[in-house]
Design a protein around this nucleic acid. Sequence first.
DNA 1: GGCGATTGTCTCTTACAAGAGACGCGTGTA
DNA 2: TACACGCGTCTCTTGTAAGAGACAATCGCC
Lengths: 266, 266
Amino acid sequence: MQDGETLAEWQTGTDEEKPANSREKGLNRVLHILDFLHATQRAIGIGELAKGVNAPRSTTYTLVRELVDAGLLELAGDGNRVYFGKKLYLYGMAYMRGNDMLRRGRQEVDTLSHETGETSELCMLQSGRYTIIHSSPGTRPFRISSATGLQIPLPWTASGRLLLAGFDRDRIEAMVSEADLILPDGRKLKLDDFIDDIGKARATGYCVTSGLVDAYTKCLAAPVFSAPGKVEATMCLVVPIDTSEERTAELIALLRERAARLSIAA
Amino acid sequence: MQDGETLAEWQTGTDEEKPANSREKGLNRVLHILDFLHATQRAIGIGELAKGVNAPRSTTYTLVRELVDAGLLELAGDGNRVYFGKKLYLYGMAYMRGNDMLRRGRQEVDTLSHETGETSELCMLQSGRYTIIHSSPGTRPFRISSATGLQIPLPWTASGRLLLAGFDRDRIEAMVSEADLILPDGRKLKLDDFIDDIGKARATGYCVTSGLVDAYTKCLAAPVFSAPGKVEATMCLVVPIDTSEERTAELIALLRERAARLSIAA
DNA sequence: GGCGATTGTCTCTTACAAGAGACGCGTGTA
DNA sequence: TACACGCGTCTCTTGTAAGAGACAATCGCC
């Protein structure tokens, strides 16, 4: 999502056809509002918000008021900006408490990055997109940009290749748009190559990509299973691209061990 | 909320009068659903959920499907139960990231409980109720029951007395129901005494309560200010009721120092 | 096997929420 | 001073979503 593009326009690409700009259900407006705030990552004025989600101003005011009353949103700073509210935080913590894999995964990621000094992440599929669920920075001087909740095209990442293992070709095509195949530096991946990669990743039980999101890092990933064959998440390490073969191999072994420990033999 | 009581019934106490059981807006239904799930703290069947929030079954099915599609809820376990979804976790993390006080508060609470070995908590007002925002267990053998998101009547706690500092009598009366004044062991507080306590707490800059929620603990609390005079949160320690005078005094001093450090001089 | 309870889906009606748009207010700037 | 702009609130209309209820399928229980 870039420049003046609205969330609605941005989504119509992936979305099913909607009957143009008819009346919208309040709940849908709300879902858009939440997504939009998640994308902007900061408090935003109500007018701006209305533009952003392509909703009438009057409707937006009403909905925002209701959401603020409910505690899902909070008025921020000067009073005419809104952002997420405490209640969402509480719900989020409740989700975490009820989710063993997530709770233990965060733990593992934290210790892993502490032990190795490298940036470590826990990733999952979220509504068809690669999502960083938790990340722990590592101790290197240069910081790899990655925030919780960040969503990145699947083909750009090692984790993406693992997360799609077990999906058939149709599903994968549906999840990956043309734009997703274009790397940040302009190179274009072939869908077939990507699907090959997925197969290989599945067979070897881990995945390494070099210089995809940027030219200076490589990405090591290992799958976490929720059931035999079902990849629920991945753990990954982001390391400098010139990391030696030996160290890379060591890190992969460590990563796979920890990821396996996370997997449930249910 | 107990036995077969529904959320709706449970709320009508505090709520404004609603025109009986008319048609309800979808968004309101959703808010009830989220609150209900937060109260139950576990995945729940859709039928049961419909009963719980007093909504028609058909409506509930529709809403749940939409929420699941949006990622706010997830189908759990066997497939016909629902609970919070990943997206709520992501929104919650975004809230935390955008909220300095909360982020630093969690940190302080963790280190405080680590240093002292006592259970420590960060508390705030959430829709007129005392809410545990973050808690760190402490190392004592007996565990004090307290989970993030737990909501407790204000008069039962030391933090409650601090959080209400600065509110006038009317506001306080509005926030405290008759039932809130009855302690778990059946004793009944006088509203006037409670309001006196609030004034004292405000003046001394901390608050201690003994044997209120249970007979074996006392609760030490210090205020965190978001602006001069405005109590945004409290930090508190839950310690055995027979903790010596000296140690209690030490802990209070430590607590006040940390709470002051959290306060913003904006 | 027979019966009651629950689960998931579907259809149709109408009460009501989403939206258009007007209004008044404060603010910046030409 | 006049004008353009964004903000917050209100009113009124109509398209539509909430809800009642019927239905088949499944489950457990005697």
